[in-house]
Design a protein around this nucleic acid. Structure first.
Length: 561
DNA sequence: GACGAACGCCAC
DNA sequence: AAACGTGGCGTTCGTC
């Protein structure tokens, strides 16, 4: 049973459809303010809410203390299906672009004034009618999946993506527990007392003075890379940039204070007082997750830099009194995913019940764990030089099936062909100029320089497609992991999201659940079982394991990497 | 003054 | 940890 929601004539129309997409009853009209109550009355295990965009419908339900079990996010599913190689013959793929293909309308987070809080009309009047008919769109999507060459995989992918949309909305709603006082203490201890924006904090000023003195450059602006580079070269240092790794190679009294300056300046600009003012309210950091925001299907975050939360400030992420954070991350997720999707039993066995890189060493392919890691990352990223480049051939001998999979993905990309993840998310192809340049380079007008440039671009695109299949399938595993966990948590705690254990953070292969202390161990078990679910959902009985490190902690920083 | 490229660092 | 994938974001600096 589906309930399709659409905004029309200043209200909401809910159209019941059967699972096959045929009419399932009389459409129901309701007012926008009545939506949360309607959802609460009609949500049930067999019900799937169909809407154009989870971010446009679900927040109001959550704000009212409600939630839904399942949904279809038409915008996200449309994007997947229109691009999918497996559904390329569908009417959906051939349809002209419409409002659902446009970038998501800017969702402005406006803090209402006290007066506006009591003015219901302000909210109801501001919601425009929907341009797209969601019933027709949903039917086209059903047909695209059913008529595809991989209906099972696409059904799983679109279901997982939609579940991800619910998780993202719920995490935005709940927020990540954030102790501003802890954060402020860290800033004061590191930078000195708070200063207004634009003023250099005391500690930074002191280090800047040391840097200027040691370079004998009293007017140096340490925040200007160009200025610093000029000054370093004037001091006789042979550097080409002011990057950290390059400076680290150099012996000079200025290097240590300069690196310290850069470290503190980064803290100030990225996660200083301004960040705290902008992003933390009422003890919560509310990052907006963008489901499928990365071309591979990974999530992105919009604002606040949630996906790059520096390790150094995770001490400010503290569970509420009586609550705990359950922090879990999947160990060596991408190589395990690669082993499974390639059906490489030797590589899967290397990771069975242990650190996968240790297993690679045990296989005799390389000598040290560090080598195993460098070689594996090199294989997935397309390393050709350095240690990675040298070690990859050893993996080819030890794990030919897995390495063949990424190699074939790279070759396809170099030819300009799309590649797909396990569940069928399909990579984009290069833009027209890529093909034009390639064709031109091999005509009579082509020069060796043009050919070199074209081949370089081809290899670059091959590295992208090589990584796409692994990173994208790992993202699918993570979606399945979170989806299963969400089901498990809601089954036992069906009330408002924040009343029971709930997801508060996600970064590619890591999740954090905020849970009442007495349920934390139960949650840890659910997270582990959800990982098993995800492995089965994607790879059935293939003998691959997805071990997690799971910690129950008071603060995020207490969980070991 | 607005805008965007370049730079550099953070995360996975 | 160089190059070898995916991103976000803040600052500086040049151009219009």
């Amino acid at each position: 049973m589906h309930l399709v929601l659409r905004r029309v004539d200043g209200g909401v129309l809910a159209t019941p459809l059967t699972d096959a997409g045929t009419a399932g009853g009389e459409p129901i009209r309701l007012d926008e303010p009545g939506l949360p109550a309607f959802v609460a009355a009609h949500d049930a295990p067999g019900v799937r809410w169909v809407w154009d965009d989870t971010a446009r419908w679900y927040p109001a339900v959550l704000a009212a203390g409600g939630r839904v079990g399942r949904c279809v996010d038409l915008r996200l599913c449309r994007r997947i299906l229109r691009a999918a190689l497996a559904a390329r013959g569908s009417a959906l793929a051939a349809a002209p672009a419409d409002a659902l293909d446009a970038p998501v309308a800017e969702v402005r987070v406006v803090r209402p004034t006290q007066a506006q809080l009591f003015d219901d009309a302000l909210f109801t009047a501001s919601v425009p009618d929907d341009d797209v008919d969601p019933v027709a769109e949903f039917r086209e999507q059903l047909a695209a999946v059913a008529g595809s060459t991989a209906p099972g995989a696409l059904r799983l992918l679109t279901t997982a993506e939609s579940a991800g949309a619910l998780v993202a909305a719920e995490m935005l709603h709940a927020g990540l527990p954030w102790r501003a006082d802890v954060h402020e203490r860290l800033l004061e201890e590191t930078l000195g007392p708070r200063v207004p924006y634009g003023v250099r904090p005391r500690r930074l000023e002191e280090i800047a003075a040391v840097v200027r003195e040691r370079l004998d450059d009293p007017t140096l602006n340490p925040d200007s890379p160009a200025d610093v580079l000029r000054s370093l070269r004037r001091a006789g240092l042979m550097v080409t940039s002011t990057r950290k790794w390059e400076l680290q190679e150099i012996e000079h009294p200025v290097i240590e204070p300069l690196l310290e300056y850069k470290r503190l300046a980064r803290l100030l600009t990225a996660n200083g007082w301004t960040w705290l003012d902008d992003w933390v309210r009422d003890g919560r950091f509310h990052p907006k997750y963008v489901v499928g925001g990365v071309v591979t299907g990974r999530w992105a975050a919009d604002g606040g830099g949630a996906m790059q939360l520096p390790k150094g400030i995770r001490g400010a992420v503290v569970a509420d009194p009586g609550w705990k954070l359950v922090v879990a991350d999947a160990a060596q997720l991408e190589p395990r995913v690669l082993a499974a999707m390639a059906g490489d039993r030797a590589m899967a066995a290397a990771g069975d019940g242990r650190d996968l890189y240790d297993g690679v060493v045990a296989s005799g392919a390389v000598e040290t764990r560090q080598q195993a890691k460098v070689a594996m990352l090199g294989a997935m990223y397309g390393a050709t030089q350095g240690e990675g480049g040298r070690l990859v051939p050893r993996l080819v001998r030890a794990f030919p099936r897995a390495l063949d999979l990424v190699e074939r993905a790279a070759r396809a990309g170099e030819r300009g062909e799309p590649v797909t993840t396990l569940l069928g998310r399909t990579s984009p192809v290069p833009e027209a100029s890529w093909f034009e340049a390639r064709n031109q380079a091999y005509t009579v007008e082509g020069t060796p320089a043009m050919q070199r440039a074209v081949e370089s671009r081809a290899r670059s695109w091959g590295r992208f497609t090589r990584n796409f299949v692994v990173q994208g399938t790992a993202a699918e595993w993570a979606l399945a992991w979170m989806g299963s966990l969400r089901s498990r948590l809601t089954a036992r705690f069906p009330g408002a999201v924040t009343d029971g254990p709930h997801l508060v953070f996600f970064v590619h292969d890591e999740i954090v659940v905020h849970a009442p202390e007495e349920h934390a161990e139960w949650v840890a078990t659910q997270i582990r079982e959800a990982a098993v679910d995800a492995g089965r959902l994607l790879f059935q009985e293939f003998p691959v394991t997805f071990p997690l490190s799971v910690a129950v902690a008071g603060a995020y920083s207490e969980a070991k990497d």
